[in-house]
């Protein structure tokens, strides 16, 4: 069995990313789409940490710092999305992205 290295983590991250893309494309429920987005964000975050660990030339922690901000922003994004969703639900009783579609003519 080969030693665990950068590529292992990158492949895991690619799997997470693909799963996230799949969720985003197939789900219609806004909350489920949001879950897919979280997967994508985590894939990117995992990349940053892995690159930081295995391939950056110096001892800086740039990748990890980036990941911290990703986590914070993900929280803020979820809050915003859910707030708007709640308001929409109060008006329409739906969280289906396709059903919330009164505008097209």
């Amino acid at each position: 069995m080969p030693e665990i290295g950068l590529n292992h983590f990158l492949i895991v991250s690619a799997l997470l990313f693909s799963a996230g893309i799949g969720v985003v494309i197939s789900r219609k429920n806004a909350i489920a789409v949001l879950c897919g987005v979280e997967l994508i964000l985590n894939a990117a975050a995992l990349n940053f940490v892995a690159f930081n660990r295995y391939s950056t030339p110096d001892a800086r922690l740039d990748g990890q710092i980036f990941t911290i901000f990703i986590i914070i922003l993900a929280a803020a994004e979820a809050a915003v999305a859910l707030a708007i969703l709640l308001n929409l639900f109060q008006q329409t009783n739906t969280v289906d992205v396709d059903e919330a579609d009164t505008m097209k003519e």
Binding site: N7, L10, I11, N52, R53, T56
Partner: peptide, 23 residues
Amino acid sequence: GALVFAALAAVILGIGFESGKGR
């Protein structure tokens, strides 16, 4: 998802990252 993964995996393995450096 499968297509995206296939593409990404090809790219990642194609780039051939070294894991020697880093923290």
